[in-house]
Structures are given as C-alpha cells and as structure tokens.
Amino acid sequence: MNDLIEVQSVSKSFGGVQANQDISLSVKEGIITGMIGPNGSGKTTLFNSIVGHHPIDQGSIRFEGEEISKLRVGEIARLGLLRTFQQTRIYNKMNCVDNMEISVSQRERNFSSMFSGRKGEILDRAEEILDFVGLYSKRHLISGDLSFGQQKLLEFAMALMNKPKVLLLDEPTAGINPTLINGLIDRLKRANDEMGVTLFVIEHNMRVVMNLASHVFCLAHGKMLAGGPPSEIQKDQRVIDAYLGAH
C-alpha cells in the first residue's frame, strides 16, 4: 500500500503555544486511519496544516509524493484532498440538492464550465448519494433547517460528491445521537470500501475509532505519542495515561 499523505516532522506554533511539535505520520491508501488525543492535543491544527489552511513552521507534507505544504486551500482541494469541519459547514440557505450539485469536483473545471447547465447526471449522482446517507426524503428542504445531525450527514455527502481521493473528517460523530452513530460508522466504512475513498478521521469516541480504523495515531500535548493498530493503541500505557491525565 502506498502512502497517500506523508507528514514529516511538522511543527506549528501560534505565538507561544506549540500546537504541533515535530509530528510525522503517514496515511495509507485505501484504508481508514484514525487520530485520537485529548482536547487541545493539536489534532485539528494538524488537519488545518495538511489542507493548507495555515502555513506550517517546519517540516514537509506530501500528497501522492508531491509537496503541498506551500499550496493554498483551494489548490489542495482540487488535488483531491478534502476535509469536513468540526463545526459543520454547509451552504445553509440552499436546499440539499443544490448543496450537493455545487460540491462536484472542481478538478477538471475550466472557465466555460463555470456556466454549464445543471446536468442530469450530476443530479442523479446527488440524489444517489443523498439516498446513501439517508437524506433522500429531505432533499428539497433548505439545508439550514435540518437538524445538526442531518447537517453533518449532508456535509459528509457533499464531500463524497466531490469524489476525493482522501477525506479528512474532523469528529464526524460529535453531537450525533448514539443510535445514529452506528449508521454513520457503517456509511463511513462503505464509503471507504465501495467508493474507494481513503479516510483520515479525528475521533474522540474510542468505541468508534476502534471499530472503524485499521491504523490509529495518538497525539498529546502537540506531540506524536503512539501509532499502531487499534488493539495495540488501546493497551498502550502512554495513551491511557494521556487520556486519564497522568501527565
């Protein structure tokens, strides 16, 4: 398996706060990789660095072997590396179908396709994916009127619409009712399996990560603490200490 994302000794600080210190990790193609860590351990900062939201202080980030740490958010997105937000972000005055249609991949778009009509095949795919996440019956509603959990599902569906190579998910189950979480785990797995999307997931919920990921990294205090298969991570004393506050 190839390394799709390679992060090498990346550091990022905000003023005096060292959010990420000398972090190295790799995300392998085709599998689901998890990232855990206590609040404030620098997980979202690392995500933001990878997608180009802010410049990094040191280190290198490669996507499919190409250095991306100097690229802008839009350019990285067009390479096929997409993220969802912890605070769900959708286009809240547009209906679900419109949200989906505008989320199509911008990779091969040129100036004239800016004005292309709203083609049937795009609509078909939008409805198919909305059905996949279970929002088909809500497809004509204004997305801002959906519940928080439904908005999260919509954001996930929009990301799939974009046909990304890698999808970075920032706490996909936060704020979702526990009975829906199982459904979501199932859909994440199917997206990985059937649509071939590599997933890199930040998750607080241990049960979810252990269920979902085949490789897990653990961050604490901005540093890489451990990495390995979930069964090992679960037993790792340093990880347990970090979560229970032994530091």
Partner: peptide, 15 residues
C-alpha cells in the same frame, strides 16, 4: 450562492 452562504467552505471544496 455558495460563496454567499460560506465562502471558506466553498474554497475548501475547491471552488
């Protein structure tokens, strides 16, 4: 319309 609703999101989606 997407830019109106959330420009940063639109940028993050590659628009």
């Amino acid at each position: 319309n997407a830019i109106r609703d959330d420009e940063d999101k639109a940028e993050a989606m590659g628009i």
